[in-house]
């Protein structure tokens, strides 16, 4: 039986970049599996005018004058994305992070197994923290959906 512990939808904007959104929630006793579903959209900035503005501004800020012409023309630089990452802490400390570009992630933790990036092990009751780190928001708005669900241990005879 899955129980939803947290289900949040939110809209963020470029002004929110570099914010950590910390969701502190209580995990009850006797939980055998924790499932985190996280999705955000859009991923990619499509507005060419805005892309050009952002690339020019980044090149001027970060690239020395004599290397700028090559930088403006670098095709990889035009691929601009939102980047939101999830990390998790149990009452005792760090339990993992998913620092990867995918905008749709399903993460689970259990006693003996966990999604890569996360530490398998007991799921102690108490206050846990799920942090969404807003590394980059390049689109005017970005919607995310975060859900945390728990599965109870199956007891013999129940």
């Amino acid at each position: 039986m899955y129980k939803t512990l947290l289900d949040i939808r939110s809209t963020i904007i470029p002004a929110d970049r570099h914010v950590h959104l910390v969701h502190r929630f209580a995990l009850p006793q006797g939980i055998s599996k924790l499932v985190i579903t996280f999705a955000y959209s859009p991923k990619k900035l499509e507005d060419m005018t805005r892309i050009n503005e952002l690339v020019v501004s980044a090149v001027e800020r970060y690239v020395e004058a004599d290397s700028r012409m090559a930088a403006y023309g670098n095709p990889d630089y035009g691929l601009l994305h939102n980047l939101l990452t999830v990390s998790l802490d149990d009452p005792a400390g760090f339990r993992g992070a998913a620092h990867r570009p995918s905008p749709e992630q399903k993460i689970f933790l259990a006693e003996s197994e966990a999604t890569p990036g996360f530490l398998a092990g007991p799921l102690p009751s108490g206050l846990w923290e799920l942090t969404i780190s807003l590394h980059e928001i390049v689109t005017d708005t970005c919607q995310f959906h975060l859900q945390v669900q728990s599965e109870e241990e199956r007891r013999a005879g129940v």
Binding site: A58, Y62, V63, D76, Y77, L80, H81, L83, H135, E136
Partner: peptide, 13 residues
């Protein structure tokens, strides 16, 4: 330290 930074490579610089 001088790799191009955000938003091209977030936090890289």
């Amino acid at each position: 330290p001088f790799r191009i930074g955000s938003p091209i490579c977030t936090g890289c610089f």
